[in-house]
C-alpha cells in the first residue's frame, strides 16, 4: 500500500512537471498573445492540479491535505478569471488576433474596433 502510494504520487508529479514544461515551451513557441494564453491555461489547470494531487498523496497530516485542496481550488478559480480579464482588456484595446487563412473564410465576426481581420479578408 505504502509502495503503491509513493509510485502513484511520483507518476502524478512527473506528468504534472512535464505539462508545466510544455506550457513553458508553448509560451515561447506560439505566434501571438491569444494562442500563448492557451499554453498558460495548461499549466494552470492540469499541470498545477497533478502536482498538487501528487503532494496530497504524500501528505500525512489532515491540515496539510486541506491546505493543498484549498490551493488547488484557488488556482482553478483564479486561472480562468485572469485569462478572461486579460483577453478582454487586450481585445478592447485593439490587439488583433492572428488568424490562419482557412479559418478566416469561416470567420463571420463583424467587429467594429477591429479592422485588421476584415481588411485582410480577401
Amino acid at each position: 500500500m505504502e509502495f503503491f502510494i509513493i509510485i502513484s504520487s511520483g507518476l502524478c508529479l512527473l506528468i504534472g512537471s512535464f505539462l508545466c514544461v510544455s506550457g513553458g515551451i508553448g509560451i515561447i513557441r506560439f505566434p501571438d498573445f491569444y494562442t500563448r494564453m492557451h499554453a498558460v491555461g495548461i499549466t494552470d489547470t492540469l499541470g498545477a492540479g497533478l502536482i498538487l494531487i501528487g503532494l496530497m498523496l504524500l501528505s500525512t497530516d489532515l491540515l496539510v491535505f486541506a491546505k493543498l485542496v484549498m490551493i488547488l481550488l484557488l488556482t482553478l478559480l483564479i486561472g480562468p478569471t485572469t485569462s478572461h480579464v486579460l483577453a478582454k482588456a487586450a481585445l478592447h484595446n485593439g490587439l488583433a488576433p492572428k488568424l490562419n487563412q482557412d479559418a478566416l473564410d469561416h470567420n463571420s465576426l463583424d467587429q467594429t474596433g477591429n479592422e485588421e481581420t476584415n481588411s485582410s479578408n480577401p
Partner: peptide, 8 residues
C-alpha cells in the same frame, strides 16, 4: 499545426 479561430 494550429488554426486560431475567433468567433461568436
Amino acid at each position: 499545426s494550429i488554426s486560431p479561430t475567433f468567433k461568436k
